[in-house]
Design a protein around this nucleic acid. Sequence first.
DNA 1: CAATTTTTGGCAATCGCTTGCCGAACGTGT
DNA 2: ACACGTTCGGCAAGCGATTGCCAAAAATTG
Lengths: 348, 348
Amino acid sequence: MAELTSNSLSTGRPAEAPDRAPTIKDVAERAGVATSTVSRALSNPDRVNRVTRERIQQVAAELNYIPSSQARSLSSGRTLAIAVLVPDVTNPFYFDIIRGTQHQLKAAGYTQLLVDTEESSEMEQDTLSKMRRSVDGYILAASRLTDAQLAEAAGSQAIVTINRASANAPTVVIDTPGAVVQALEHLTSLGHSKICYVSGPPTSWSNAKRWKTFEEESRERGIITSRVGPFAPKTTSGAAAADAAARTGATACIVFNDLLAIGMLQRLRERGIRVPEDMSIVGCDDIFGADFCNPPLTTIASPIEQAGRVAVSMLLSQLNPLQGATNRRLAVMPTHLTVRSSTGPAPL
Amino acid sequence: MAELTSNSLSTGRPAEAPDRAPTIKDVAERAGVATSTVSRALSNPDRVNRVTRERIQQVAAELNYIPSSQARSLSSGRTLAIAVLVPDVTNPFYFDIIRGTQHQLKAAGYTQLLVDTEESSEMEQDTLSKMRRSVDGYILAASRLTDAQLAEAAGSQAIVTINRASANAPTVVIDTPGAVVQALEHLTSLGHSKICYVSGPPTSWSNAKRWKTFEEESRERGIITSRVGPFAPKTTSGAAAADAAARTGATACIVFNDLLAIGMLQRLRERGIRVPEDMSIVGCDDIFGADFCNPPLTTIASPIEQAGRVAVSMLLSQLNPLQGATNRRLAVMPTHLTVRSSTGPAPL
DNA sequence: CAATTTTTGGCAATCGCTTGCCGAACGTGT
DNA sequence: ACACGTTCGGCAAGCGATTGCCAAAAATTG
């Protein structure tokens, strides 16, 4: 990088463009070809003779030429950027999704635009419309949109959702039913028969899904269910959640997510309700912190980072329909119950 | 959004552009003016008559016109995008920085490009050069660059660093010396006289800074110091760190960051070393989880989100030098010691 | 009311790159 | 050698904005 100034000096005449970033034109001139040839050599290598191509590539490298993504997308129509919308960047659940998408996008030469929609469907919609010109597609993690909104959006742009099934867009979800069943069996085998579901945000699809499965499966097993909430998916909502759950007389709770569960843990301890002796707690997501909270949380784990990666590949295959690719519309990530210390035998 | 199709129908003739996003030209035609006027009406309102401007704005709204950021930046030279580079998106320490920058950038009409540099200075450099055409500036959180690299980069582009002082770029740092002094006083007042510093990554500026202050201040107070490490700033490195620290015979540790400290907590518990009875631990950063780990961590807290915000405003004022703005080159965020349960009286 | 200044809006060049189209050069089969 | 199919590289027209320059219109002034 540093040597290229000296490099242009070595051409004989002083460097023409002292500082300004080199453009395709600079490369073309220096290589003695037209800009169109440079363009092709760089982005459509087969279209140009090998020796020409190599010369151009060499010159480009010497000049440290980097094509302007703006100019490129202006003329080509593709931006090579994908927006990833998450309800809350500080929620650890999304960390791994973000990392997963980031990895996969970068590998494919795309840029990731991360947007925090602050749990607001308005903001989500707004972003969707404001960014439509600047990205090729969207990944919506835990979208708060209604079905209708989602359908409309998916009609005009490439979208993949995570943890939000929809008939209109490809989706990657985690296997909630399977997960709930595992949790339920774990709890019943420990002797619990009165179990409470601690509900997350009303606009959350996965919350609805979890509750539904929980209720159905519980009925089948003759478990007495109750439900409290909704609560915001934050540790700070845990106190209220814990109090509400304690009142129901349940001996175990399945909690919408780990954030809430961890908050509950703290509150229960304050109130002298022992976990798991008096009350068992099962969380969801196995987020950062679930393993070192007190007590460590039994929780439903899932390969979240992979979910992000899968979402990206689904989106990209939607954007660049390859030959033999069977466009998957749905991916279900497996789950497993990670048992730690927040669950134990039911009190007598 | 939905009404605009019907809107164009109501003009009498069928909608001209059925689907394609409306361009400035569409707006111009519909409003009966030239594109240049539309451009001005929208981004330089004083340059155009009030009634014309309002008509244009109305038409733009009807059409749901959104200017193409690519086209805009091609001609104007500004991208209205800022890249934020962090060493590890899944490190909770950066969450709040990210959220802070995101907020502030959005408020100023900028787009945030988040990049995970994976603790690698090569990747950081690479990003810096690859993105130079697509962003107006960079925020480097905990940069791993050398001084020389940083200086070079800062020479050709707008940069603000966080937690990395540099003569060449404006910086926001947290008040490490103050923090270390607080921690030290806390520990000495509890009777500790042999304290170990648990070191983070060798390329981390704040690590170096913390160690330096620790050593100096300890010397003044007659404390016997030791140092172990370096360790990667992850909970998984905590085990090795704990073992190493235990060997030193120190009764208290000041740990590079909370991630590492939390990992140590787990290991110490496994080994039956009680915290704080046998060993006191002080972390840094007060990240998510520091309050609910076991035992809750005494740590040095700092307004991280605000650091992100400040960094953004420093960067923006660098980009758009306002009139009376005294361009600050350095912002120091205050710190305070949050005492929880991981520190206690020194063993006899 | 003429002269001058200020507003206001349009023209057209430009930003850097992609791509459809075309012609030159180069093989090939007969 | 001739007609024909390929390959390769250049020309030039955009992509959708911004902006310097200019002229028409309006406002101000003496």
